[in-house]
Write a protein that binds this DNA or RNA. Structure first.
Length: 423
RNA sequence: GGGGAGAUUCCAGAGUGGCCAAAUGGGCCGGACUGUAAAUCCGUUGGCGUAAGCCUUCGCAGGUUCGAAUCCUGCUCUCCCCA
């Protein structure tokens, strides 16, 4: 199976330039994807294109990660309705360092003939003067050509700064530079990047009569049409400090049934044959499919050990968990189980003569925003303490309610757990 | 440059002197049903208070009034039309 066939089978192929198939069968190719350091961590949304790099490498080619240390300072208009906020340089450097670490878990950087490479376009842009750039890049493409791109057209009415307008030229220059200096012939990315990518292939053609190639993947959406990658309005990050492996695992468990097969094809490292087999076997059992999906991805991103913990926690919280079980757990077990569950500390003394449930929820912790909200939620039967529903907002939490004398498990709704630690 | 319209609670959008913490829809959150899913139905959606009630909120700053989101003045911003 060729790379292209594999990407297609996995739902990771939207579009490609002619001749890619031949290129990939005839030679070992270096292919890159650019990532803008606009956040301290990569997100699960980024993971989609990262999978393209993973498969590229698994097919014996060389994946190249390009960090937009320079272009991240400018902002890509693609898919944006409004001008983007600029980040300061310290933030960008900081983000970049973090993202770099994450890639080291995901791609293989230590493997002889096709180890992954990593570079930063600041390396070359920092030495190019504006005049040089106008001569070397700007001269070769017409404004008419640049304006014909969808990302630009969409913004012509509402306004686009010269800076964002120029973005495709910068990205195109990246491709050109890497083509010339690193032998990179392929650029991949989300389908929203098609315009920017082809600016690159065009620049390469015009400047050096070279031929470069592109592959894009569809933008991943959920069955309900909303953007993939957020949970309760929050981003799912790949950094375990920012999104715990438990939450990460839960993100997939909570996927809509209809999405599970698609997600599974995209994110599982299993062979496509095995994937299809598992999907077929679980046609009547979507929950099992989602479990397998969640396990595969969590293991891939966070490792075996983190996965085990995420599963253990999930089982206690959603499966066999009872108040009695919680009280039978040791302090160590508690901490391990609830690692990754949002945790709040409250002074132990406050429990000494009883702490009202409203103060606990709305004042002493940020589980809820206010006492008013706490009252509403309790009235709505949403709050549980140590896995038992709180029926009255006049409940007082005393020392005896603390597991091991220091823990409280509070949940709001059936999915949002919190750990309160008395200190 | 001239003329017009507008800025309301997360969003859209009612409200044109007291009955307005502000209709309705969407979203969010929650409940029921299920399977930690979707769909559906239901509830909630500024803060404090057990409550009566109090406090903050309708672009910003003043003013009129017993009382203003609603009236007046100035300011800022947005949109539309003409030039």
């Amino acid at each position: 199976m060729t790379l292209l066939q594999e990407l297609r089978a996995r739902g990771l192929l939207q579009d490609h330039t002619p001749g890619v198939e031949e290129l990939l069968t005839n030679e070992k190719v270096k292919g890159y994807i650019g990532y803008d350091p606009t956040a301290p961590s990569l997100t699960i949304g980024n993971l989609v294109t990262i999978m393209m790099l993973v498969h590229l490498q698994r097919h014996g080619h060389t994946p190249v990660v390009l960090f937009g240390g320079a272009t991240g300072r400018v902002g890509d208009p693609s898919g944006k309705d409004a001008e983007r906020k600029m980040l300061d340089i310290e933030t960008i450097e900081h983000n970049l360092a973090h993202q770099q670490k994450q890639f080291q878990h995901i791609l293989r950087f230590d493997q002889g003939d096709n180890e992954a490479l990593l570079t930063n376009n600041y390396n070359w842009f920092k030495d190019i003067s504006f005049l040089d750039f106008l001569r070397d890049a700007g001269k070769h493409l017409t404004v008419n050509y640049m304006m014909s791109k969808e990302s630009v057209k969409r913004r012509i009415e509402t306004g686009i700064s010269f800076t964002e307008f120029s973005y495709q030229l910068l990205q195109g220059y990246d491709f050109y530079h890497m083509y010339q200096n690193m032998g990179v012939k392929l650029q991949m990315g989300g389908s929203d990047q098609w315009g920017n990518i082809t600016t690159g292939t065009e620049l390469i053609r015009r400047k050096v009569s070279g031929e470069a190639f592109a592959i894009t993947c569809p933008l991943l959406t959920k069955a309900d049409g909303t953007k993939f990658g957020k949970s309760e309005g929050q981003n799912i990050w790949l950094d375990p400090e920012m999104t715990s492996p438990y939450k990460f695992y839960q993100f997939f468990i909570n996927a809509t049934d209809d999405d599970a097969p698609r997600f599974f094809r995209i994110f599982s490292l299993r062979s496509i044959e095995e994937i299809e087999q598992i999907i077929a076997d679980n046609a009547q059992n979507p929950n099992q499919l989602k479990r397998t999906l969640a396990e595969d991805v969590t293991k891939f991103v966070h490792g075996e050990e983190a996965l085990e913990k995420a599963i253990a926690t999930s089982q206690i919280l959603f499966g066999k968990g009872t108040k009695e079980l919680l009280f039978s757990m040791s302090e160590k077990e508690m901490l391990e189980t609830f690692e990754g569950v949002p945790t709040f500390e409250v002074e132990a003394a406050k429990f000494a003569d009883g702490l009202s449930i409203l103060d606990l929820l709305g004042v002493e912790t940020q589980i809820l925003c206010s006492k008013g909200e706490a009252k509403r939620e309790i009235k709505g039967n949403a709050i549980s303490l140590n896995l038992q529903k709180v029926g009255s907002d006049s409940l007082v939490v005393a020392k005896d309610d603390l597991i091991n004398g220091k823990f409280l498990v509070v949940n709001r709704g059936k999915r949002n757990f919190h750990l309160v630690v008395a200190k």
